[in-house]
């Protein structure tokens, strides 16, 4: 295991080292100490390496991740795992706004709370939040699953496409065109798998499913006020 100390190593050197290793598909493990809330840490990783960050990170940690596992042992700033393609990002603390935004694939596991716009425009990523999520989460979410063990803020799933949302706690309000939907056996199975993969202590039966009413897909003059 290689230790990169950001008290002595620049962000650019850290990212170059990680990106180089990830392209070699070396399955290497790295530990980053003294992250000091730096921005854009461990971004653009393109292979199955493991990165453990001992502390909190700034904006856009683990952005554009592909195949790598990035474990943040503190909290993450805005845009963690933005546009992730595959792999796994774990945040032990809280995540700031737009966690997992536009993610195409992979798993984002947030052990604390996520703030506003979690999973905005997600396109296939799975996001599991063990705490609560803020307002406007899953706005225009197209594909993938957002699982919330706690509560959701205002305007959940506004203008939603085909992403699925599962919430165990309360939902402050649903956004335009987002409705509660029936939980079928395949949803319970999907949820059971995500909960077990993220070490979540929750029963699939306790969740409610939300999805798109699909009324905004085609323009209808009667819905002009909803856009």
């Amino acid at each position: 295991m290689t230790v990169l100390d950001m008290a002595h190593t620049t962000l650019r050197e850290v990212n170059t080292t990680l990106q180089h290793a990830s392209k070699g598909h070396s399955n290497e493990a790295f530990t980053i100490v003294n992250p000091r809330g730096s921005h854009a840490m461990a971004v653009g990783l393109d292979g199955p390496i493991t990165v453990t960050i001992k502390g909190s990170t700034g904006y856009y940690c683990a952005g554009m991740n592909k195949a790598a596992t990035v474990h943040v042992e503190g909290s993450a700033g805005p845009g963690v795992a933005e546009n992730m393609m595959s792999g796994e990002v774990i945040v032990e603390g809280n995540a700031s706004q737009y966690a997992g935004a536009t993610g195409h694939g992979g798993l984002l596991n947030i052990k604390g709370n996520a703030s506003s716009r979690c999973g905005i425009s997600m396109k296939g990523i799975d996001i599991v939040v063990h705490g609560n999520i803020g307002h406007m989460s899953a706005f225009m979410a197209q594909k993938g699953n957002l699982v919330v063990l706690g509560d959701a803020g205002d305007a959940l799933g506004d203008s939603l496409y085909e992403a699925r949302i599962f919430v165990r706690g309360t939902v402050k309000s649903l956004g335009a065109d987002c409705i509660e939907k029936e939980m079928r056996p395949e949803h319970l199975a999907l949820l059971a798998d995500l909960l077990s993969r993220t070490g979540a202590d929750a029963r699939p039966e306790d969740f409610k499913r939300y999805g798109s009413a699909r009324k905004l897909y085609n323009f209808n003059i009667d819905h002009a006020g909803e856009y």
């Binding site: 809330g37 921005h39 700034g58 909290s75 700033g77 603390g93």
Partner: peptide, 20 residues
């Protein structure tokens, strides 16, 4: 941003959160 806190005493064990 969190970066501004890193030199504060005891920040590693502080309660850190975002105001709603």
């Amino acid at each position: 941003e969190y970066r501004a806190f890193v030199n504060l005493p005891g920040i590693d064990t502080a309660r850190v959160w975002e105001p709603e």
